[in-house]
């Protein structure tokens, strides 16, 4: 009886189990990828073909029309991509710093009102955003930050904070006290402990916050539209919406698909670059 689990553990590494693991993985992956592949194929279909009944699976004739229209220099795509990049990267930087600090505060210290304050922070996750935008615009205007990319960046940061502070609080509070105490005893300053000991330990949390903040600010539409009024300051989702949705809400499916593909690229890149931090043993080693 006692040997059974051991042998089953050994079994897990045997080819038979591995085959099922692969099969499951491939089936699941197809489910996730089929919609994306269909979309990618559609970017090479003409407008007429996309309206055809019954629809075609593979493009009947390859056309780059959608790509050309999207990258038409007069379309302002480059400018809006730059704007989006500035706002998103700025949001990521600000969010990571502010939420790491706050996570440290909430996770490592106990002070009067910390529970209530944390709940106020979480409340940011729970308010319908559409109506709040109107007063938000008024506040930003009062600060002289309406129609300003930095203003948008601040707004984005504030609405990523609830989730990111939650993550960071969890990360910091999970660090055993002994580590901190030992370091302090070794003569580390508190800042030193924070920078040299804690930060490496909470890397997975920082990575999650960064990815989350980037994706949300990269794809956000409504706040950017309400808060920005100059065409040159518009972000990518606004420009895409202008191009993709025409009279009466007619969707230009080819441009829609192409736009999605284009906006996915930086997100995937970021994820790809950062995901290794999730599984690197960096922290299980250090925490021991």
């Amino acid at each position: 009886m006692k040997t059974e689990p051991l042998s089953s553990r050994r079994l897990r590494r045997k080819p038979f189990v591995s085959v099922w693991w692969w099969v499951t993985g491939i089936v699941l992956s197809s489910l996730f990828l089929i919609p994306l592949v269909t979309m990618l194929l559609s970017t090479f279909k003409s407008r007429t073909e996309l309206g055809m009944k019954p629809p075609t699976l593979l493009p009947r004739e390859l056309t780059l029309d959608n790509w050309q229209r999207l990258f038409d220099p007069s379309a302002g795509l480059i400018q809006s991509t730059m704007n989006s990049a500035i706002v998103s990267l700025g949001t990521v930087a600000l969010t990571v710093v502010v939420s790491a600090l706050a996570g440290y505060g909430f996770g490592r210290f106990r002070f009067r009102g910390s529970g209530v304050l944390f709940f106020v922070v979480l409340a940011g996750l729970m308010v319908p955003f559409t109506v709040l935008l109107t007063p938000l615009l008024v506040v930003l205007r009062g600060m002289g930050l309406s129609n300003n990319l930095f203003g948008v960046m601040l707004v984005y940061t504030v609405y990523q904070l609830p989730f990111c502070i939650f993550i960071m609080r969890n990360a910091f509070s999970g660090i055993p006290n002994e580590i901190e105490e030992a370091a302090l005893m070794d003569g580390c300053t508190r800042v030193g402990v924070f920078r040299r000991i804690f930060i490496p330990l909470v890397i997975p949390g920082i990575v999650t916050s960064a990815i989350f903040a980037f994706l949300n600010s990269w794809n956000e539409f409504l706040a950017a539209l309400v808060l920005l009024t100059d065409q040159e300051k518009f972000t990518l989702p606004i420009m895409l919406a202008v191009r993709q949705v025409g009279k009466f809400g007619t969707v230009d499916w080819g441009l829609l698909d192409t736009g999605i593909v284009v906006s996915m690229i930086p997100c995937l890149l970021i994820f790809f670059l950062l995901q290794r931090y999730y599984v690197s043993g960096i922290f299980s080693g250090a925490a021991k």
């Binding site: 008024v138 205007r141 009024t229 100059d230 202008v242 949705v245 809400g249």
Partner: peptide, 25 residues
Amino acid sequence: VKPVIIPNHDYQSKLGNAIGSGDAP
């Protein structure tokens, strides 16, 4: 003249918010 193009769907909310807050075109 400097044109600013706003997505169809959200035109009235954008314009209303702008006029209401004093950022009118």
